[in-house]
């Protein structure tokens, strides 16, 4: 079975938390767990309801990748900016994006976060710094660099994080953006969630056996790699990169190996179609970021089953309310179609 695992987990499992845990108050640790749990439960509810066809939007679930989004965004300030690829749910929620507006958007309602012009690939909430997305792989990267350039030119104390994936490193514009950001030392972090597959194309059919981190480093910027199932490790690494950027020392690239437990798009997993082995997913599910962190928090007596159950109930109630809100929200009118093509 192990031979079918093309992309094995290489981290330290729940042993990887100890080195970082001392730096955080117990409440903060539980808060990080809760943030991941909230994303997981939201995603599962979206997935459960998707077949009802009330959410007429493609979905790209982040189930399995919650530690990356939460670890990263927990290292940011509200005023910092996040840009993202099409897989937006995690970054949007972790950055503090409004759940009701997200679900209204996914239900194509006028009070969606972008007024039903975006759908799930374009979850934007500028009030919390969720600044922009693109459904074209790599498309958002230079825009994020431009945002960082604007911050630098205006001497603002902010940084930009751009969420990208392994396939983004195959786009020419990615290399162009690394080059320019290193040249100008703009305050940006390239946060590369390497989940090994672009839709159903494995990394090995798209890239030679190169080291993505080393490739980025060749653009003369610090490039780090961090265990993407370890929320504390991600947070720690992003914090360092953000401090580097805030100090005016320029960009950092971070490679974050993660695994998506679901298909590229839509509900459910599609491993059985054969592009990846079910055993590979099962091996990564054994190191589910929520499971591992919960094991660690239980082992260190910071989280009980009862408190998790309480959290789940609270979150479930919030989610139910948000779906109810979305379903009760008005649809756009024809006149709405013609708004905001041009700015005044």
């Amino acid at each position: 079975m192990a031979s079918n695992i093309r992309y094995p987990y290489k981290g330290q499992g729940d042993q990887g938390f100890d080195v970082f845990a001392g730096a955080h108050a117990p409440d903060a640790l539980v808060g990080l767990y809760r943030a991941m749990l909230r994303i997981r439960l939201i995603e599962e509810e979206i997935e459960r309801r998707y077949h009802q066809d009330q959410m007429k939007t493609p979905i790209h679930l982040v189930i399995g990748q919650e530690a990356a989004a939460v670890g990263c965004c927990s290292a940011l300030r509200l005023s910092d900016l996040v840009y993202s690829s099409h897989r937006t749910h995690g970054a949007y929620l972790a950055k503090g994006g409004d759940l009701k507006m997200m679900l209204s958007e996914m239900h194509c309602r006028i009070n969606g976060c972008v007024g039903s012009r975006g759908g799930s690939m374009h979850l934007i909430d500028k009030a919390v710094g969720m600044a922009g997305t693109s459904a074209i792989v790599g498309g958002v990267v230079p825009i994020a660099v431009g945002a960082a350039l604007a911050i630098q030119m205006k001497r603002e104390d902010r940084v930009v994080v751009v969420f990208i994936g392994d396939a983004t490193t195959e786009e020419g514009v990615m290399a162009e953006s690394l080059n320019f950001s290193a040249l100008k030392k703009v305050p940006i972090v390239f946060f590369c969630e390497n989940n090994f597959y672009s839709v159903q194309s494995p990394l090995a059919t798209r890239q030679p056996a190169r080291d993505i981190r080393a490739w980025a480093e060749s653009h003369r910027m610090p490039a780090l790699s961090v265990d993407g199932v370890n929320v504390l490790a991600v947070r720690d690494t992003v914090s360092k990169a953000v401090a580097h950027a805030r100090a005016g020392r320029g960009p950092t690239f971070i490679e974050v190996p993660v695994y998506r437990f679901r298909a590229h798009g839509g509900a459910g997993d599609d491993s059985k179609t054969g592009y990846r082995d079910v055993a590979e997913r099962a091996a990564w599910e054994a190191v589910d970021p929520l499971l591992l962190f919960r094991q660690f928090l239980a082992r260190t007596a910071q989280l009980t089953d009862a408190s998790v159950m309480h959290m789940e109930a609270e979150i479930a109630s919030e989610i139910a309310g948000a779906f109810e809100h979305a379903l009760a929200s008005p649809n756009p009118t024809e006149a709405d179609l013609y708004r905001h093509v041009y700015a005044d």
Partner: peptide, 25 residues
Amino acid sequence: HRVFDTPLSEEAMMGVSAGAAMNGM
């Protein structure tokens, strides 16, 4: 810092321009 040469990276520089424009420039 306000008038500058660019790398030969037309797509990235167009995106950089858009991103800067979206953020107050």
